[in-house]
Design a protein around this nucleic acid. Structure first.
Lengths: 160, 160
DNA sequence: GTTAATGTTGAGAAATTTTGTCGGATATGT
DNA sequence: ACATATCCGACAAAATTTCTCAACATTAAC
């Protein structure tokens, strides 16, 4: 029973993103190189997160991703759901439904475990993880002249 | 995040075994055919469980497996450990140790989740799963003349 | 308008893990 | 001796996860 690297990548990338979220879009390649995650793989992941309502994207030059909502409003459970990473313990019930559900003696055990995990994932937000108690973070993008400078430096030093 | 079929097979097989535990050894092929688990695969699994101190084996004709200890003394956590199925959420810490442990913002989340799951697995015994509140079940094997009869019937009807 | 930076998508290759098989060795009750 | 079992290691098959690639769409900056 282990968490997929997809899920781990995602949380690290989202932590990275939200820790430098001053409303400027951050590019996938920036995050990927900082977090040492394959760029193209992270692109896929961010696509899922966007479709799942976790991220919003800004296409084109100087574009990138921003959080779709304030970090304290995004729970870990939502992130995993957006990734299509269901938290399943029994193959029973949640997946495709198991005909043995009634007789299967392990059913209630897995339900109990799942309930416990879900509880934690539902009550932990991205802000909790980053450790910042961000109270207000406007998701609107305010065109900011500083970003260009900062981005340029990061890009040069990484050479990507 | 899902439980392996190995773990599920194991719990079903152990439930089966302990629900008919009248101290007679039960053969792998009996359990496998009742539970619809590949015989040779279950052999492997039972080997692990034996080496992990969950099962005891009786070799030779009319042999089989019995619980090494009373069912109410075997926890699910022990079973998973015997199978070499660690309950890991972060790739961090438990697996091979991750150098980022200090900086990694997700560390405490996964530790919390793992702690919660472990708690449940540690406090749930095989007896709980089977639903029988077995208070006393002598692990010693008492050679019982009935077993042969019962086994013969079961084997014939399955035809394995 | 051209260009460069960036997101978007789908197909599929590569790697890893899980699941399952096989052949034979060893042990033991009858 | 024989039939029934466990035991063991290596391997085969399948599934899943991880990662790459190629082509395309969109936008900012020049």
């Amino acid at each position: 029973m282990r968490l997929s690297t997809t899920a781990r990548y995602s949380l690290r990338a989202l932590s990275d993103l939200s820790s430098r979220a001053d409303n400027d879009p951050v590019s996938v390649s920036d995050i990927a190189s900082r977090q040492d995650i394959p760029v193209t793989y992270l692109e896929q992941i961010f696509g899922k997160l966007r479709r799942g309502g976790i991220l919003a994207s800004i296409r084109g030059s100087q574009g990138g991703y921003i959080l779709a909502r304030p970090a304290n409003d995004i729970t870990v459970a939502e992130i995993l759901q957006a990734l299509g990473e269901p938290v399943i313990f029994g193959s029973c019930q949640t997946e495709k439904g198991c005909e043995n559900a009634v007789t299967c003696p392990t059913f209630s055990l897995w339900r109990k475990v799942k309930g416990s995990v879900d509880e934690i994932l539902r009550t932990t937000t991205l802000a909790d993880i980053v450790g910042e108690k961000i109270s207000l973070m406007t998701p609107a993008k305010t065109p900011d002249p500083e970003r260009e400078e900062a981005r340029r430096k990061a890009t040069e030093s990484k050479g990507e």
